[in-house]
Design a protein around this nucleic acid. Structure first.
Ligand SMILES: [Zn+2]
Ligand SMILES: [Zn+2]
Ligand SMILES: [Zn+2]
Ligand SMILES: [Zn+2]
Lengths: 135, 135
DNA sequence: TTAAAACTATAAAGCTACTATAAGGTCAAT
DNA sequence: ATTGACCTTATAGTAGCTTTATAGTTTTAA
């Protein structure tokens, strides 16, 4: 299987596959005489794993870590679970931060209607005055 | 006022100030004979404005747009209000996406306890099997 | 007075996770 | 023989800084 077929199979661009190889996330495949990469089903599984991790918001470093655990299948999976716990708390704190931000933005938005000149705009005034509750 | 004092006043790094100047967000200040930048109060206000916008999650491009409105203070502020509306909806869709992600991660996390070997880890199995409800 | 510390300058690279572009080699079909 | 689709590598761009390198200037302390 060549790179284009693999890409289509998993739904990524060919450059992305080369990029993962370069980053050490995907093992370097064999090459044909002409230099073309030849992939096996295992590569397909590995690539699909990476993509599902990415959809879950895991960083390439976190994926790398998960792969290192997979390479040693008889150790305890505590570290895997902890990685996910950490990631969940990252996501939760992002949500919290964005919700606070939304609140701030909505209250700022309420300080202006559409019938003003820029110099009287409640939004620009609100930002400039800087009475923002940071964090 | 030199760059270090301005940086301390507003709470940013000196490089950040030079970066904003380079990006056209902060007007180039006068220079001393030795080449050192000399800032006025207006620069301080401009920099504080940028920082407050950044805290609100506005991109440098959006800040640039706001500044262009400020330069023409007698036009209607409709565009300013619209920019904020857009930004609010960006933030809301980020929140929605992250909440969906959190749900997915939590259910994945529930598929494992801490007393397994990696090869039996419910999380790794869940990712590998790929029964993920995308988006 | 002089030497170190602290400050300033520019330019360039690094960060994340790709995406895009350039310039070229390979292969099948027309 | 040439088009088109595919493959190769290398390089640059994205956002918003941060870090590093290298060098010149000012301030402070011995
Ligand atoms: Zn994470
Ligand atoms: Zn307004
Ligand atoms: Zn925005
Ligand atoms: Zn587990």
């Amino acid at each position: 299987m060549r790179i284009g077929q693999l890409a289509q199979l998993v739904g990524v661009e060919t450059q992305t596959i080369r990029f993962y190889e370069q980053q050490g996330l995907l093992p370097p495949p064999d090459r044909q005489d002409n230099g073309y990469r030849v992939y096996t089903e295992k590569h397909g599984e590995g690539l699909a794993f990476i993509r599902r991790c990415r959809i879950l918001g895991l960083s390439l470093a976190e994926i790398h870590e998960l792969q290192s655990y997979q390479d040693d299948p008889h150790q305890s999976c505590t570290a895997v679970n902890a990685l996910l716990d950490d990631h969940i708390s990252h996501v939760r704190s992002q949500i919290t931060a964005l919700q606070a931000l939304e609140k701030q933005l909505v209250s700022l938005r309420a300080s202006c209607n559409d019938d003003r000149e820029v110099e009287a705009c409640g939004i620009l005034a609100g930002i400039s005055e800087g009475n923002m509750h940071q964090q």
